[in-house]
Design a binder for these strands. Structure first.
Lengths: 92, 92
DNA sequence: CATTTTAATCGTAATATTGCGATAATGGGA
DNA sequence: TCCCATTATCGCAATATTACGATTAAAATG
C-alpha cells in the first residue's frame, strides 16, 4: 500500500485527482510533465493498487479516486500510525 | 515519507517497536529473520527518515520510535488522505 | 592487552523501478 | 474507409533497492 504512494509522480496524480474531486480525462500528461508512456504506467500502478479507477469515455479515459478504497487507505494508515508515547519520555 | 514505510521489513520493524513501546536492543535481527547487515541497513533508512532513533547503550544500540516524528507522519498521512466523496456517486 | 560481543559499513550480485521512444489498439469524425 | 486523437503496451537503458558475506569499529571483560 505504501508503495503505491511512494513516488512523487503518483502522489502528484492523486493530489490532482483529489483537488479536482471529479473525473479527469487525460490532462494528467501535461500536468506531470512526464512522457505519456510514463504517465500511463503510473496510472496503471495506481489502478492496480485499486486506489483510482479509469472509465473509458469514448476516445478518452477518465480517472478518479475510488472513494471506498481511499477511505480504506485512510483508515489503515490511521491504525498503523496510532499514538505512540514512550512512557519514559526520552528513549533509553 | 511513504518510501520509508514501503518495505515489509521496515513495516515489521516499526510494528515491533510500537508493540514493545520501549527501547529494543538488538533482537531485531532474530525478529526479522534477515541478515544482520540487511537489518542494520533498514534501521539506517528509518533513522534517516527520522522516524526512529538509536541510542548507544554500551555495546548495544537501543532503538525506539521517535514519538514526535511519528505524530508528524500520522498527521501528514491524515491530511493527505482527507475525505474524498465524489459528488456524482459513480465516476463518469 | 587480547578476546568477545554487538552494530555499522563496504563491496557486490540480484532484482525492481523508472522513464521514454516506438509501436499497437480503440473509437470518433471527415 | 482513411486519418486523427487518445491510451495502452512493448522493449530497453539507466538507476535504485535489496540482500548478504566480509570487514571494520567500538565497547565491555578477563
Amino acid at each position: 500500500m505504501a508503495k503505491a504512494i511512494a513516488h512523487p509522480a503518483r502522489v502528484a496524480i492523486l493530489q490532482y485527482l483529489v483537488k479536482k474531486n471529479a473525473c479527469v480525462c487525460g490532462d494528467l500528461v501535461e500536468e506531470l510533465g512526464l512522457a505519456q508512456a510514463t504517465t500511463s504506467q503510473h496510472l496503471k500502478e495506481l489502478k492496480t493498487a485499486g486506489i483510482i479507477q479509469g472509465t473509458v469515455e469514448g476516445v478518452n479515459v477518465c480517472y478518479c479516486i475510488d472513494p471506498k478504497v481511499w477511505k480504506q487507505y485512510r483508515e489503515l494508515f490511521n491504525v498503523f500510525f496510532k499514538d505512540v508515547t514512550l512512557e519514559g519520555g526520552n528513549c533509553c
